[in-house]
Nucleic acid binder design. Structure first.
Lengths: 189, 189, 189, 189
DNA sequence: GATGAATGAGTATTCATTCAT
DNA sequence: GATGAATGAATACTCATTCAT
């Protein structure tokens, strides 16, 4: 790939991330191109479809999260490690909520693969935290992934939310994930 | 109101609820009309604007929830009452997530009023549960309203979720809301 | 025709005249009905088509003008009589410009007939004025009918025109119609 | 600008002029696009709004008229110069009546400016004709602008008018504008 | 390779007209 | 007879996508 193409691709992804964060999946390709300082046609040269561009942005984010999870898996204190992961993840979502995880309707192979990796990494993190007695035994990695999305989501209801309002809700969820005072969960999956 | 008009209005609201639930606020008026089995023009006869239709749907739901909250406020066991409320609310959202609460940008007066009533009713419910020692003291009615939306939301990530999957996540949140094992929350509002 | 039907028809015509005057031929049937204090359906009972309603309004006006022309034809001073006619006609147009004369695309028989009568009456008026030496010989009744529409028309260009601005322009036209200083006209018809 | 874009823009303007002339300001954008042989979207790429398209058409015409007026202002015989101007102007209107002058409700700046220039140029022309004794003293440039629109307008009442029928009516108006036989005008403005 | 012009399907909304009440 | 609810064709405008330059 030529150097300028690579540069274009990078600024395109950055612009897409920002626009999608601001306007959701309805952000317009024209706006993204303008923000990236490139032509609309170039967007479609890099990604045949807006959906594909969205998938690439999500892929990026999923990959980053996976790397973070793998990194934290090395820490001896499994409970705080998981908490830190969730904090970082929720914070990142402030800029781009993970609802994109759903987004890719046409199942993009690479994205599916990346999702699986993220799932595996988080599952490991959770399991270690459970072994350390920091997380209740009846939740799975998937449960944690899902709950991880909630703090950012609920703050979107609040018109002029403080930028770290999500911490409140992550706090409640973490308390809910701990073994102390845990009541049995509905088992349906 | 004429009988046929009432029938149309009812099926219109039902169709709108369903379409909005499936496609979010971007659901098209044409689809809603088709689903309701009425002409596009009829939609606009009943609601001058798509926004107004959305507001009506939300108003309906908000009103129902308020009635439920007020009803449950009469029960002597404040803790279980709140839990039941949240369970019912989350269940209802299976069909129509509350993201609509955000929806009505042009603040419809009646809707704003209804929101306030819901807020008040839930706040009362929460306070009573707190007095009964069933809910931690550092959460507010608003916190509970927000968290109430999470269980349904997170299940939307799961492609073919069991219809009561949300119960798992409500369970976690309820555990997080109880005083046992509560750690201090970030205070930012 | 029942008494109430007659009353409805009258207020309908009045309302239509007013609405058409204010908003041109694009005035909406709903507004006309509302203004007349009757239902939309009733409008269509009286006139099968909006076009027909418009034609009726025009017919009314044409008939009035014809009556006026016939009345003035009795006056001994043919020149001033014609001038008075044109003044009255232009004044009336302030409320409803005669562009309606064109309007009836589907040639309504009664309207066509009425137009012919108006044409004949004006032609007579003109001829008498010509015989009296008050109007140049090279203009026809048709020419006068057409020019009669101009004063009101041109004032529509002036955003906040004085209500009698048209008199200025009628004055110029009258001067142009007199024999003094007349230069030969292009003969094309 | 790309060659094809320029070509499209030109045929768009031509089509718009024709459609607006035939159907007035209510001509539909779809029809204009079809007539221009381009897609609907292309119309909006060139002019963000139908109003803007209309303004462009009018601007074109106003500019042409201004140029003509300025050109004729150089001629020594002020009376015939004004007559020629009015003749040319009326002839041009055969294809597009000046009712557009009213059209641009949202006052487009460039159009407002152009209107002013046209007004000034015609006023100068009129004043010189008055100094030469060819036009009565009690009319203004504005009066002449307004009357200039009449000849074309009145011919629109005649179903299958000869293409130069307007000359008849311009003749009458010119006679009315001359000092000979002029009677005082109503002074209201 | 990059650009942005062109395209046309899709959107909310209006309105003359029809028809059940 | 009168009403106004229902209808759907029409309208201005948007936007993902294609393609000539």
């Amino acid at each position: 790939m030529r150097a300028d193409a690579a540069r274009n691709r990078a600024s395109l992804l950055a612009a897409a991330e920002a626009e999608f964060a601001e306007h959701g999946p309805d952000a317009s390709v024209a706006d993204i191109a303008r923000r990236a300082g490139i032509g609309k046609g170039t967007v479609f040269r890099h990604f045949p479809t807006k959906e594909d561009l969205l998938a690439a942005v999500v892929l990026d984010r999923v990959t980053t999260l996976t790397a973070l999870a793998l990194h934290l898996a090395g820490r001896p204190d499994a409970g705080p490690a998981l908490e830190e992961f969730l904090g970082e993840a929720a914070g990142k979502q402030q800029q781009l909520d993970l609802s994109f995880l759903r987004g890719a309707t046409t199942v993009n192979d690479r994205l599916a693969e990346a999702r699986r990796s993220l799932f595996d990494a988080i599952t490991a993190l959770v399991r270690r935290a459970q072994d350390a007695g920091a997380v209740r035994d009846d939740v799975t990695g998937m449960d944690v992934i899902l709950m991880m999305c909630a703090p950012h989501y609920v703050t979107t209801y609040v018109p002029e939310a403080a930028p770290d309002l999500w911490r409140r809700y992550l706090g409640i969820i973490l308390d809910g994930l701990r073994p102390e005072g845990a009541r049995p969960l509905s088992s349906s999956r």
